[in-house]
């Protein structure tokens, strides 16, 4: 989260006197811009300045040619080809009729899989550190923590609309197509609204293991 411009606080005017904190931030930002202009984007950027650095990069990218470089281009292309061939060579999950409709992994998670070995190593270390802290800082865990909450019901989750809509018939005319499209979005909206209402009006009770208990708070 930045201290920056997501808040509605007024921006200082160009000639307003800066305090020491602002001067320090501005100097640090200037150092980051030096690296970007020199073609050496910094590896680690403080969260506060990341958004501004992105804006600066957008401005530069929009107003001057940006080179990827022949070597980087080849490297990216090779990696892309290898990934695509691996995906296709492993059997196209998109055409395998034995795969369930809801079982396809969103693209964001497919990307994450490529980084899985490193991520697993990192998470394993984090889990080990977490386990040590829990053992040191907490008394014996209560029954509530040990009991896993029941899974959230399907009708309360965001999910594909296939089961709700079914096969979409070919429309003989534009007018029929328009009516049918409206009917489909109305159906999806109504169904999800019912789930949303149930989830929000009943609170978190149904997601916990204790039926009939009231909402949180001392």
């Amino acid at each position: 989260m930045t201290r920056d411009d997501d808040t509605p606080s007024p921006m200082p005017a160009p000639d307003d006197v800066a305090d020491a904190a602002e001067k320090a931030r501005a100097r640090a930002f200037g150092d980051l811009i030096d690296k970007v202009v020199a073609g050496r984007p910094p590896a680690a950027v403080p969260a506060d300045e990341r958004a501004l650095l992105e804006v600066a990069t957008v401005i530069r990218a929009a107003t001057r040619p940006v080179e990827l470089g022949a070597a980087r281009t080849r490297s990216v292309v090779e990696a892309a080809l290898a990934t695509a061939i691996e995906r296709k060579g492993g059997g196209s999950r998109l055409t395998d009729p034995s795969l369930p409709v809801a079982g396809v992994v969103p693209l964001a998670r497919v990307r994450a899989r490529r980084l899985a070995p490193w991520f697993i190593a990192g998470v394993t270390s984090a889990v080990a550190a977490a386990a040590v802290l829990v053992l040191v800082l907490r008394p014996a865990p209560s029954r509530d923590v040990e009991a896993a909450p029941p899974p959230v019901a399907t009708h309360l989750r965001s999910r594909p609309a296939d089961a709700l809509i079914g096969v979409i018939a070919r429309a003989p005319s534009l007018d029929v197509a328009g009516g049918a499209t409206v009917s489909r979005i109305d159906t999806i909206y109504a169904d999800r609204l019912a789930g949303f209402r149930e989830r929000t009006l009943s609170g978190a009770t149904r997601r916990r293991g204790s039926p009939g208990t009231k909402g949180g708070g001392p």
């Binding site: 984007p41 600066a56 990069t57 940006v66 990827l68 892309a80 080809l81």
Partner: peptide, 28 residues
């Protein structure tokens, strides 16, 4: 990379990841 992805992301490392993903998807 230079005219579509980086100007919309502002971060070179992420832009390269997105480029790689784009090309892989196109091939697939």
């Amino acid at each position: 990379y230079g005219t579509v992805i980086l100007p919309r992301l502002g971060d070179a490392a992420t832009a390269e990841d997105v480029l790689r993903d784009t090309l892989a998807t196109a091939v697939e």
